[in-house]
């Protein structure tokens, strides 16, 4: 069966649509379709991919208007006509490849690692954690930094310096970790007007997350904590 791939391409100056017809078998993914085009029809097609099993988050693209991971989306689940575009809210570099530099910089800016006063890399100690403490943040560790949540966020669409759902979720993930001691540091980083207060709870990030980790929930929980801290600071 032949399926039409209509791809939005960008050559550095102008964007245009190009259509390819490719033979599809049951179970074939959109990413395999893109590889088929690159290997057999047009070697200049640019897209980003790595693990091919929804772990690396590299292959996020818009398929028929909805952002998805190309490697876990089966072509025949979508239909026999596919429109593939780069993610929104990111600068397009070429074809389906977008610039993630700012996205990763925002992620890094919230200190997404354990902060402890007793860090000793020479003599590391085991940090004990109960299952309940693990489940408090476990879901949020599943984020693959694919940028899909950021691409649909209306707050990120209208303000470039907004941290975005992924970065705030990463901050929440470490703040909710019982081993971490950097809660106040991170709260200070995300409670500005380019952080949690910029979110308008459109909740689209949670709807599209390929790992179903509910970033909107993490953002609201961070916001609630930021509000409590702000109220407490009045009485200090």
């Amino acid at each position: 069966m032949d399926v039409e791939f209509k791809i939005k391409r960008f050559d550095g100056e102008k964007s245009y649509w190009q259509t390819f017809n490719i033979p599809v078998k049951k179970g074939m993914t959109v990413l395999e379709g893109l590889y088929y085009i690159k290997e057999n029809l047009d070697g200049s097609l640019a897209f980003r991919a790595s693990c091919r099993m929804a772990i690396c988050g590299s292959c996020a693209v818009k398929i028929n208007g909805k952002p998805r991971l190309a490697c876990e989306t089966q072509i025949l689940e979508i239909g026999n006509k596919l429109e593939i575009e780069p993610l929104d809210n990111f600068r397009v570099i070429k074809d389906l490849v977008t610039d993630f530099e700012g996205f990763f910089a925002k992620h890094e800016s919230v200190k997404p690692y354990l902060i402890r006063k007793d860090d000793n890399y020479e003599e590391p100690v085991e940090l004990i954690q109960s299952p309940k403490e693990l489940y408090a943040y476990y879901d949020f560790t599943l984020c693959v930094k694919c940028g899909i949540c950021y691409s649909v966020c209306p707050a990120a669409a209208t303000r470039d310096d907004y941290l975005g759902p992924a970065a705030i979720t990463a901050a929440y993930r470490f703040n909710a970790d019982s081993r971490d001691e950097g809660e106040k540091t991170r709260l200070a980083l995300v409670c500005g007007d380019n952080g949690v207060w910029r979110c308008h709870f459109a909740a689209e990030c949670s709807e599209v997350c390929p790992k179903q980790i509910d970033p909107a929930k993490a953002v609201q929980k961070m916001r609630f904590k930021a509000a409590i801290e702000a109220i407490k600071s009045i009485f200090r």
Binding site: K62, N64, G65, K66, P67, D88, V152, P154, A157, T158, H200, F201, A202, A203, E204, E207, V208
Partner: peptide
């Protein structure tokens, strides 16, 4: 972009 609803869920339409 506040009014982008193509391919989005009911939550974006509500927004």
């Amino acid at each position: 972009r506040w009014f982008t609803v193509k391919g989005r869920s009911l939550f974006s339409i509500a927004f």
